[in-house]
């Protein structure tokens, strides 16, 4: 494993370009930066995040769960309230809406944790190489 560290984006990107130009395949390069450097993501051809699938699944689950919970509980013991129908969809929509957002957000968070491989016990327990630097790691064969 080869490691290059920099204090600024300029030399970091320069080195990255150089590495790619010299034919190092992107699969063997890993970079760590203190803030997102979009040029580096482009250079490394980082695929578009699959997080949206998690988000969509969560939100859809929340939406359905909201209606399911409200309609099930209203019909399981039908009680009349102020002349309103047992299944009163407008108020139930509010619950469905809130649950859409809640489960959407929670699923996004969980999806993120999974995709970004955090929490990473290894990096919690041991110190991280070149923490806070613009770093390039090249995996050696």
């Amino acid at each position: 494993m080869k490691r290059f560290t920099f204090d600024d984006t300029e030399p970091f990107l320069a080195k990255l370009r150089e590495l790619l130009a010299t034919g190092t395949p992107v699969e063997r390069i890993e970079v760590a930066t203190p803030f997102p450097v979009h040029e580096a993501l482009l250079l490394l051809k980082t695929p578009v995040s699959r997080l949206k699938f998690f988000t969509f699944t969560g939100a859809l689950t929340g939406f359905c769960a909201g209606f399911a919970l409200t309609i099930y509980s209203a019909t399981s013991w039908p009680m009349s309230h102020g002349g309103k129908p047992i299944v009163s969809l407008p108020p139930f929509m509010i619950i469905a809406f809130e649950l859409t957002i809640l489960l959407g957000a929670v699923a996004s968070l969980l999806g993120f944790l999974y995709l970004a491989r955090v929490p990473a016990p290894k990096y919690i327990l041991t110190s991280i190489e070149a923490d806070g630097k613009f770093a390039i790691f090249v995996e050696e064969l």
């Binding site: 009680m79 009349s80 309230h81 102020g82 002349g83 309103k84």
Partner: peptide
């Protein structure tokens, strides 16, 4: 003892109902 009692739908715990 209203038919459309305003008190009923606002109770969160079903303590009042028709």
């Amino acid at each position: 003892q209203c038919d459309n009692a305003p008190c009923e739908p606002v109770c969160p715990v079903n303590a009042t109902y028709h």
